[in-house]
Structures are given as structure tokens and as C-alpha cells.
Computed example of a mutant assay.
Amino acid sequence: MNATRFFARMSLDTEVGTALSDTRIRLLEQIEREGSINRAAKAVPLSYKAAWDAIDTMNNLAPEPLVKRVAGGRQGGGTQLTDYGRRIVAMYRALEIEYQAALDRLTERLKEVNGGDVQSFQKLMHRMSMKASARNQFSGTVTGLRLGGIDYEVRIALDAQTEITAIITRASAENLGLAIGREVFALVKSSSVMLVADRSVKLTARNQLWGEVSAIHEGPVNSEVTLALPSGRSVTAVVTADGCEALGLRPGSPACAIFKASSVILAICE
């Protein structure tokens, strides 16, 4: 058997999914070093958009934000880690050392087993890894369950300030083993999110999250608009360029992200 070694590219999982990876930790370390998301992204390297997407995801999944925007930085503003973010980076690196040592012991043990094929095992682990394509990924706790015929209305608290509602089939609720207090993962495609800027507009959609436009990534037809929610989480929508202009969306302007309860996909990790 060819000499093969596992290398520690650790990811940290919560009850509702993967929250941290080596790339994200390196991004956090560069933010701490540079004080700028642009310079940090180049150092990793990541695109500016990919870096902000990663930050939004981490802040959404964590109990409290890891990264915050600050005013009055070296160039009029910047980005920095919170104390919680610094603790998470330190913990990750400490665990990574132990993780690598464990992998080295595992490699040696596999070599001792008849037919132990480290490379085949690596391929299996790679195939079992998966990521969700939904742009908006939240973790939360089930706070309400109401049966309505064949459907369940599920209320999920993302934090003390933010709650969303999902509608799933009774069979899905039973399959997931949903119960009050259970940690769940909520996924919402950015194409399912609509935006409004007028507080007087009345809509039937159950989920209406007011925030402030934090970023707009413009495309030739559609733009990707990210709202920063008061809790530090964020939600992203895909809006036509004309729609963006008609709503007068600009960084710093208030807007509401709206999506149907039926657009929320729930998942759990066992």
C-alpha cells in the first residue's frame, strides 16, 4: 500500500450542521490581522463576495456574531472579530492540533489491518461530505408546532429577536422527530426571498424580517441583496436590477425580506 497520510482539515459541527472550516478560520484570522474584509479575502484567497457570504453564514449559525463592522477604522471603517470570534479561532486551532495527532494514529492503525486501504477510506469520506446550495442557512430552536390537517406549522426562534415559520408535511415533521426545544437547520433559497421598502405594504407571507441593506452585488440582470438583521444575522435575496432601482435600495437603507413559510426547508443532524 502506498504511504498515505490524513491531514487535518477540520470542520466544527453544531447540532444543526457544519459551522466552521479551515478556510473560514483562515478568513477570520486574516480579518483580525488586516482589519479589512477586502485584504483578508485576498490573503486567504477568496473573492470579496465569497468572503462576505462566509461571514454572513458564520454569523447566522453562531449563538452570537463572530465578525462585526466598525466605523472609524484606518480608512474610515473596517471589519473586526468580536471577542467571541477570537475565542472560536483559538479553540479551533487548539482542537486542530489534537485532531492531526488522532489522524496520524488512525493512519498507522489502518496500515496494521489486513486489507486496510487508506486511500479508499479517504474517497468514501469525500463522497459523504455535502453542502447545501441554499444561500440562506439559519440555525434555531423549535418554539411552536401546530398541526393543520396534513401539514405542520413550525415556528423557529433564530435568536431572542428573530423568529421564522415553516410549513412542512406531517410525514416530514415525524421523520425529523420535531419537538419543542429541538435544534433545527432552516434553509431558504435567495430566489424565494422578496424585498419591500415600504412599511405600509400589507403582505400575506408569514416571514417578514426587517433589516438594513449591507451589500448589493450587481449583475447584468439580477442583483444579490443582503440585509443585516438587528440580531447580527443576515438574509440574502435575488432581485432584478430594475426592482433594485425601483425600491431605491442602497447600502444602509431599510428593507424587509419576505418569504413564504412553504419556502423554508428544515433539516436536522443526528
Rank of each mutant, 00 (worst) to 15 (best):
Q100K: 12
M130T: 03
E224N: 11
E183Y: 02
Q137K: 05
V184K: 11
V225H: 09
L147N: 05
N136K: 10
A205L: 15
A50M: 11
E218P: 09
I25N: 10
G181T: 06
A205Y: 12
G211D: 07
D198I: 12
K123N: 02
R39W: 02
T14Q: 08
R182W: 12
R87A: 01
A19R: 11
R182H: 03
T240Q: 13
R206T: 04
A54F: 01
R74T: 09
D56T: 12
R127T: 02
D53S: 11
T82I: 08
A41H: 10
V184W: 08
V142I: 15
D22T: 15
G181S: 01
L27C: 07
W210E: 08
E34Q: 15
D159C: 03
A197Y: 05
E174C: 09
C244H: 11
R135K: 15
T57P: 10
S200P: 07
V16P: 10
T79S: 01
L95M: 07
N175D: 11
L158C: 02
R233Q: 03
P65C: 01
K260P: 06
N114L: 08
I150N: 12
G232R: 00
I268V: 14
E108P: 04
N114H: 11
A228D: 07
S263W: 03
T143G: 00
L81H: 00
G252Q: 05
R9E: 05
S263R: 07
R69S: 07
F259V: 13
T57M: 13
A43Y: 07
F121I: 05
V264P: 10
R127M: 10
A171W: 14
F6R: 02
A215T: 03
A228T: 10
R135N: 04
G149E: 09
A51R: 06
A43N: 09
L46Q: 00
F259C: 08
K260N: 08
L203F: 09
I268G: 03
S190Y: 10
K189G: 00
G149R: 10
V225W: 09
R170A: 11
S21K: 13
G77I: 04
R206V: 09
N2M: 13
T14V: 04
L12S: 06
T79V: 14
A94H: 11
T107Y: 05
A166I: 06
A166G: 03
T14A: 02
A173N: 04
W210S: 15
K189V: 02
R86T: 06
L147M: 12
A171L: 14
P45N: 08
T236H: 05
V16G: 00
V89E: 08
G248L: 11
I88G: 06
F121R: 00
D13E: 01
M194T: 09
A205S: 14
L209D: 00
E34A: 13
G232Y: 03
S139W: 01
L187E: 00
F138H: 03
A90V: 03
M10H: 07
